[in-house]
Simulated scan of single mutants.
Amino acid sequence: MGDLKAKIVAAVAKDLEKIEGRLEANLTPELALVREIGGHILFSGGKRLRPLLCVLLYRSLGGRDAFVYDVAGIFEFLHAATLIHDDVVDEALRRRGKAAAHTLFGAAEAVLTGDFLLARSLNLAARTKNPEIIATIARITEDMAQGEIEQLRNKGNLGISEASYDRVIERKTAVLIAGACKTGALLAGAGEGAVEAATRYGRELGMAFQMADDLLDYTEDEKTLGKKPGADLREGKATLPLIHTLASGDAPLCAFLKRIAGTDFTEADFLRAREGVIGAGGLDWTLKRAKRHVQEACLALDNLPGGEEREILALLAEYALGRRH
């Protein structure tokens, strides 16, 4: 996976540089504190996947205007806003290996900066003067908020179904990635079929990426994740590895997992939980589900023009299955 990541980064290095430059240029609040808080999350090492997808889909469908780098920033501003808000809601202490914004600047200040970032994304959408793009961004914002609310209501409920889990991660993760791809296609003036294919690719890729995140919470260490592993279990969130384990594991294991979920359990408890999830096939099942979504994403690409951009999009789908933070 290291070689694959290096290949992708080399292919998109110039695009990433331009995306970074436009993010800097468009983070222009009147208050210095808002820029400091926004910059704390925006420039803390994010992968820029969402804006990159917007650029790649735009160019693959014939777009050539540099304005795409401003439009692509919509999705990083939206993503950063949700991370700030999520950390406040979850009372998280770390994000990307750094102190969460609300722990440094205060919860009220962090939430209001998240609101500013949401507004800035809508401002950029309005600059396209494309009603479909504006409507897409508005719908994404609605869906992400509802996904977060549903996840919050499910907190501590370990009996949720896979269908409920799918609905939450589609709203929280997949709609933003799908929207980035759709916006790139719309900005390029693509036809309905191409817009639909781009959207489907993004949706399937988003589902796979979230499932990969759920795997990382059980398989990686604190240095790699930038936060303690097992965070979802500590917060009482039923992600796919746990949902499958509780449906197929033995009674003693299930009782143990239910007892420690939502508590600040010990490292020994986490190791026992991880071994149990692995033994019950929770990680294998999650990987299998993620692979299906990657396959669907690649099938969607078959409906888009060939070329370098489509090859990179296929590599990104492959990378989703074995990535590390």
Results as ranks from 00 to 15, higher is better:
R22N: 11
E267Q: 14
K182S: 11
E308V: 08
V9G: 04
G236H: 02
E91K: 15
E20F: 02
E311W: 01
C254D: 00
N154T: 02
L57M: 15
D221Q: 10
P252L: 03
C254Y: 00
G114T: 10
T173Q: 00
G39M: 04
E91H: 14
G262P: 07
I177E: 00
K223W: 05
L4V: 01
D269H: 14
F270G: 05
R323V: 12
P305Y: 09
L176N: 03
L225P: 04
P252S: 08
S44R: 11
D86K: 01
V195R: 09
R139P: 00
A280Q: 04
A110I: 07
E296V: 00
R139D: 12
R22E: 15
A10K: 12
E17R: 14
L301H: 06
C54S: 12
E192M: 09
G276K: 10
M1D: 13
L321M: 13
G114K: 10
A135F: 01
E132V: 08
D302G: 14
L152Y: 14
A320I: 00
G62Y: 07
A208M: 02
R234V: 13
A238V: 06
A197T: 06
K288Q: 13
G307M: 11
L104M: 11
L253C: 02
T128Q: 09
V294H: 05
D269T: 02
A107M: 12
E318R: 14
P241V: 02
D221Y: 08
L78Y: 00
A188C: 10
F116N: 02
L158F: 04
L56H: 07
G62E: 09
A6I: 06
K223Y: 08
I169P: 02
R96F: 05
A320G: 04
L240A: 06
L316C: 03
A80F: 05
A10T: 06
A300F: 08
L83I: 14
G106K: 04
A314W: 05
L57K: 00
T28M: 11
D87Q: 09
I19E: 02
A6K: 15
K288R: 14
R234G: 09
A261C: 08
V71W: 10
L124F: 06
G226C: 06
A194S: 13
D221W: 09
H244E: 02
G21I: 05
L158P: 02
D143T: 01
M207I: 14
D214K: 05
L299G: 11
A107R: 09
R310D: 10
T113A: 08
G184I: 04
E162A: 13
R203M: 13
S60E: 12
R310W: 05
A178C: 07
H85D: 02
A6L: 12
V89A: 10
S161H: 12
G322P: 01
E36H: 07
L215Q: 11
A261M: 11
V68I: 15
K18T: 13
L61M: 13
A10H: 08
E311C: 00
A72S: 09
L316A: 01
L53T: 02
G282R: 13
L215T: 05
L158Q: 06
D232K: 12
S164R: 15
V277H: 09
L316W: 01
T286H: 08
